[in-house]
Design a protein around this nucleic acid. Structure first.
Lengths: 204, 204
DNA sequence: CTTGTATTTGACCGTCTAGTCAACTATTCT
DNA sequence: AGAATAGTTGACTAGACGGTCAAATACAAG
């Protein structure tokens, strides 16, 4: 009961957009409100700080958007290496879209925000870490499956996953800094390479 | 002639420290001045904005400190793979020190600042890119030498270097986000692994 | 010692920003 | 209809911040 509103959702979306495009520290509450078409009074009705909003925005984005995409790309119905290659390809395609829309390569919001705020805001840091850890688990699971079918040599799958994830996020961040998609084009192949993949690599 | 001063140097150092520990967007000119023990009027005598100072600080740090360290670590007198392993080990050791002093893993200032400001400040972005590109060249040169002696399989050395660099910076950033050095411990081994190194890897 | 130059200082201004609040409006339930 | 609830508004404050400046100070060279 009571008055209805989608202002909260608009704030979440505006905040993530703005912070992704610019950075956490530089985006003001006023700017978020303006982009969301919401007055500051309403902002403080829903959230009590920029930090709280950012955590909610990261969470919402992962739960509502990210997770489903990752689930589809890492579907067990695909061959394990195909999952990884397909994922990397879709990341590339996604950044092509982002560059078309925003005029810039923006990389991974969670990683950028996490890296920026980690020493300053423990709550954001923890949320970013949580999401990134979830993502690493997708890698790890695909690597395990690949090892089971023999397309990736045996050995600590968790370590391999962390390694692949570092390559992945490092490339995205580099692409953001250079504002150049070239860093990402080779990602599908490079990913299989560093895993020492046996099947797809040769076929390609 | 005229009054002498090291205020400029103090400002450069304070700025890099503060921005490295916190972030570019969140560090104010007042804070930099306070840490440097310099009044704001003097700040504007030497620099005309935080952006200008940041570019100078990145540059100074690379020219005065970074370059020499990289030169030593990538000295041609060392076997190519030993250069890479030694470099990664020294990065790990360095971050251990940083964590002792600052209480946190801070990662690579150039990469963090670059990623944060890239969409906002073209001058900082360009300087960060320039330094990062220089660093990639150290990797590339070592990889080329390794290929020449047969310890790394042939193939596009520039691409391999970018890949290794992404792994390297991705790991550092991840370590910052998690505030955990574990992400870095395996870096020396992982680096040789992804290069498909033949000699040192087996010996280890 | 004095003159020219480099640097420092602190006071000052306008603007931006986080955060508050009481009054107002829309919606739902009874 | 009317009470209760959920959300909105705009005006307000206090402080932080970027940026400016004229006057003061320290140093170096002639």
């Amino acid at each position: 009961m009571g008055r209805t509103s989608d202002a909260k959702e608009r704030l979440l979306e505006a905040a993530l957009d703005l912070i992704w495009e610019r950075s956490y520290g530089v985006v003001t509450i006023d700017a978020i409100c303006e982009k969301a078409g919401v007055k500051k009074g309403s902002f403080y009705y829903f959230f009590d700080s920029k930090s709280t909003l950012a955590v909610a925005a990261l969470n919402e984005n992962w739960i509502q958007d990210g997770k489903a995409k990752w689930d589809a790309l890492f579907s067990a119905s695909l061959p394990p290496l195909e999952r990884i290659r397909g994922f990397m390809q879709s990341v590339y395609d996604g950044q092509v879209e982002v560059k078309k829309e925003h005029g810039k390569v923006l990389g991974c919001p969670c990683f950028s925000i996490g890296s920026e705020t980690s020493t300053q805001d423990e709550v954001i840091r923890a949320k970013a870490q949580e999401i990134l850890q979830s993502q690493i688990r997708y890698f790890e699971s695909a690597i395990r499956d690949a090892q089971a079918e023999g397309s990736v040599p045996p050995g600590d799958a968790a370590a391999k996953a962390k390694c692949l994830f570092a390559l992945f996020e490092g490339s995205l961040a580099q692409a953001r800094i250079q504002n150049d998609l070239d860093f990402l084009r080779t990602l599908p192949d490079a990913s299989l390479d560093i895993l020492g993949a046996r099947s797809l690599k040769v076929a390609a």
